[in-house]
């Protein structure tokens, strides 16, 4: 199991990326993360939903009430243009970080 502290610090990037692909509701986000990491990492929903709230208050994402395919209503989140710009910044930082890490420990990663 990977040290989840590292991933937790990047929850913003994960949420923004997933919302760039399509609008999702809270539990859907949790499920997609779990499936995509093949159950290796399941973020606590308490952390995920709180991060979503924080991103919304910073206007990086916005929410709307939408109908679900079957039955009930869901609160869907979509990324704002501000959020997309912020995501681009995160990617730039990651790129930079990656270059540095590869330059230093690259030979050990293989």
């Amino acid at each position: 199991m990977i040290n989840s502290d590292i991933i937790r610090g990047n929850v913003d990037a994960i949420i923004l990326k997933l919302l760039m692909e399509q609008d999702m509701y809270g539990y859907e986000l949790a499920n997609v993360i779990k499936t995509r990491t093949k159950d290796k990492f399941s973020i606590k929903e308490a952390t995920l939903y709180s991060a979503v709230t924080r991103l919304e208050s910073r206007e990086l994402i916005s929410s709307y009430i939408g109908e679900k395919t079957r039955g009930g209503k869901r609160r869907y989140y979509r990324i704002t243009s501000f959020g997309k710009a912020y995501y681009a910044e995160i990617i730039k930082d990651w790129q930079f970080m990656k270059e540095i890490m590869v330059a230093i420990i690259g030979s050990d990663i293989g």
Partner: peptide, 9 residues
């Protein structure tokens, strides 16, 4: 927000 998400789950 947390309540809504939990109820959806």
């Amino acid at each position: 927000i947390l309540t809504t998400s939990l109820e959806e789950k």
